[in-house]
Design a protein around this nucleic acid. Sequence first.
DNA 1: CTTGCGGTTGACGTAGCGTCAGCTTCTAGC
DNA 2: GCTAGAAGCTGACGCTACGTCAACCGCAAG
Lengths: 253, 253
Amino acid sequence: MRTWTTAEVSKMAGISPRTLRHYDAIGLLEPAATGHGGMRHYGHRELLRLQQILLLRRLGLALETIGDILDGGLDTVAALRRHAEQLEGERERLDRLAATVDDTIRQLEGGQPMAPETWFEGLDAGRQSEYEAEARRRWGDAVVDAGERAVKQMSPAERARIPARFEEIHQRLAARMEAGDGSGDDAVQAIVADHYRFMERLWGTAPTAEAYKGLGSLYTDDPAFTATYDAVAHGLAAYLRDAMHAWADRHLA
Amino acid sequence: MRTWTTAEVSKMAGISPRTLRHYDAIGLLEPAATGHGGMRHYGHRELLRLQQILLLRRLGLALETIGDILDGGLDTVAALRRHAEQLEGERERLDRLAATVDDTIRQLEGGQPMAPETWFEGLDAGRQSEYEAEARRRWGDAVVDAGERAVKQMSPAERARIPARFEEIHQRLAARMEAGDGSGDDAVQAIVADHYRFMERLWGTAPTAEAYKGLGSLYTDDPAFTATYDAVAHGLAAYLRDAMHAWADRHLA
DNA sequence: CTTGCGGTTGACGTAGCGTCAGCTTCTAGC
DNA sequence: GCTAGAAGCTGACGCTACGTCAACCGCAAG
């Protein structure tokens, strides 16, 4: 029976000798025999096994998984099915990521949607905001007036940090959303708790369940708000709305 | 000016203290000051920088790239555009991969397409193959008769290795295709050279340019062949056909 | 004085090899 | 018989972005 050296096998298979040594080291493909000076010699059985390895590797399976399959510990079809699911998840993640990156590019390039700091300006006295009228209609004069007083009483430094605080909360939420957390999960609800406390300071009063849920709904109802949130991450507006509703139901009902 | 400790910053930002230490270690985000026992203290500037970092990180940029951007060495939009291209490429790769995995599952589960070893059986005397008639029509009696003699003269061991040789060539080709190589690239043409030499041994005679190109065309014209190749990797049949045509034009013309 | 909390610095592990560096073994040529 | 070169070998580090110990230190409470 013929045998082949590392270099010969590597050329036949189109891989590097280093790869063959690696597969030996991790026990995935051991040579049929080793001769003088540790020289590796591969036989037919090893070539066939290598072929299986490369076939499965091309499908993106991990080397350890491949080893389990070839050693009979795993069913090929079952392993491939699990792998296909992971691929699908990864593809969806990439899709969302690509969409967010594209949005960010557009936002940086030109017409950027309403920045977060413009909302609270709607509550800032002295500025005529198109959102102030909307706010008075939604939450009433008392709430808006309290908000104006609260923002006026802030130190300039504190006011200056408001945009950053918004950004921080959005980023944390987007990270959770992209990690696959549901809007009702603990980690997400903890962020919403921060968000609620922040709104409480902005409004100068604790939002009622209804007011807070209304604010959440505004994020998906008003295209300007939706654009703002979805520029951070696709679907963030709806995600935040759901999280706010869930939080309000749990803590304000 | 207030400062924050590692734990405080990590809670605010929703990341681990270890991550902050890592960012310090690689020079991406250094604390404003370090006190007793090496305690890290972060100020406003650092918090703002961290926010930028996390924003760009969410978009999938490498930490080194983020550092370059924040230190002014890279244009944000340009970097994002390059990144978007990479994402697109990655997404396409995943799509092809997922399709191939699905095909493989279907193939393993049931109705598998014609296996490579069945072709040469068409040249194997004693077996009546539906492909033999097709072969005689395409290449003539002389070629097919020579092929039958050649295969008969092989040792059983050599015959037994034929399927494996086919598999090997297909895998190498698929790997090149998925690596993005063109069908005329040197690495691909080298594989085709192996393929030609192999066919030469199977046929017992050196295929003419016309015969070899005809064989390549058969791979995309006959659905059974196409299915076989595309089960290895989507688009492999057309890829191999193009590579064979290019090789024949260069070496047999 | 001990315990505990909150911080610190290494150092290893992850996946799949690429890439030296340094040693051995075999063959060809002088 | 000696040597240069080719081809093999065995470590060991590097890459990404941290997670996860282990071991140690300073400070406040009991």
